[in-house]
């Protein structure tokens, strides 16, 4: 039997407001189904970003009763029947309209990371890798880029000024993934610390908690990356090599001309 539920949905841009709707809910439905019903029956121009509706593409990220979630995986049966459901766009990114925000920050950060670089002496088909060696980076490649971990991360959630120098959990995990790729030849440890803001992360594990793919971002990617960065920085051999000038160019730098000048000035918040 369908029930009547109350939804409060963000409408408009940054200066928008919550609008209230009463809407039918059927057995087995998820929040995204209800938003679609609102489009079909009450407000056809309600902006919602979605795609696969099966938890595989990571498009329909939003905040449901304050919690960052995929709306296609948020089952209505998990809410109380008289519970009002408040749906708002992800807070860390600028709102375009209604539930859709501008997530270009993420694509920007992806571009700054030096890409996978195999040994130039090898050719396609040469690689031999054991399953046990690919499993660690494979876990990170399950990422569907829903950006919920970016949304929840306190380093940037209310701190626009940190966006320039912090790539967020998703892209620090990408650095970890490349560092753990058995056939990669670059060394991104210094750039992770100095340009991508590894040091900002104080392992509160909020990212892990919201990950719909249940990737252990903090434990398996961020902490090991921090350890590798520490190894690099405090390795006495590396330190000596740097001092006497024998170790030039081993640290892969950030890709030139990939960071725009449009980020707000870094300053300490009042």
């Amino acid at each position: 039997m369908p029930t009547e539920r109350t939804f409060r949905v963000w409408r408009g841009g940054a200066d928008g407001e919550l609008a209230e709707y009463t809407v039918e809910v059927h057995e087995g439905e998820v929040v995204l189904d209800i938003l679609h019903r609102l489009q079909a029956t009450q407000t056809p121009d309600l902006a919602v970003r979605w795609n696969c509706k099966a938890g595989k593409c990571g498009s329909c990220s939003m905040e449901i009763n304050g919690r960052p979630r995929l709306s296609c995986m948020a089952r209505m049966s998990t809410f109380e029947e008289d519970e009002t459901i408040i749906v708002t766009p992800m807070r860390t990114f600028p709102v375009i309209r209604d539930l859709v925000c501008d997530v270009s920050y993420n694509y920007q950060k992806a571009r700054e990371i030096p890409s996978f670089t195999p040994d130039p002496e090898t050719r396609p088909g040469d690689f031999r890798m054991q399953q046990s060696d690919v499993e660690r980076p494979q876990e990170f490649r399950k990422c569907i880029e829903c950006f919920l971990c970016q949304d929840v991360c306190h380093v940037i959630r209310d701190h626009e000024e940190n966006k320039r120098n912090f790539s967020g959990p998703r892209f620090l995990m990408r650095v970890a993934e490349l560092e753990m790729h058995p056939k990669d030849t670059e060394d991104r440890r210094m750039v992770a610390q100095e340009e991508f803001g590894m040091g900002y992360c104080n392992i509160t594990k909020c990212c892990t908690e919201v990950c719909p793919e249940h990737i252990k971002i903090t434990d398996n990617a961020l902490i090991p990356l921090k350890e590798r960065v520490a190894d690099r920085k405090y390795d006495p051999v590396v330190w000596l090599g740097d001092k006497i000038g024998l170790r030039k160019g081993a640290d892969t730098p950030m890709v030139p001309n990939t960071r725009p000048n449009t980020y707000p000035e870094e300053d300490t918040p009042e």
């Binding site: 890409s115 996978f116 195999p118 090898t122 050719r123 396609p124 088909g125 690689f127 031999r128 890798m129 054991q130 399953q131 690919v134 980076p137 494979q138 490649r141 490349l178 790729h181 990669d184």
Partner: peptide, 14 residues
Amino acid sequence: EYWGALFDRTSEGK
């Protein structure tokens, strides 16, 4: 694979 894809492996590493 040469561009970075990580497929599941056989015991020979292929």
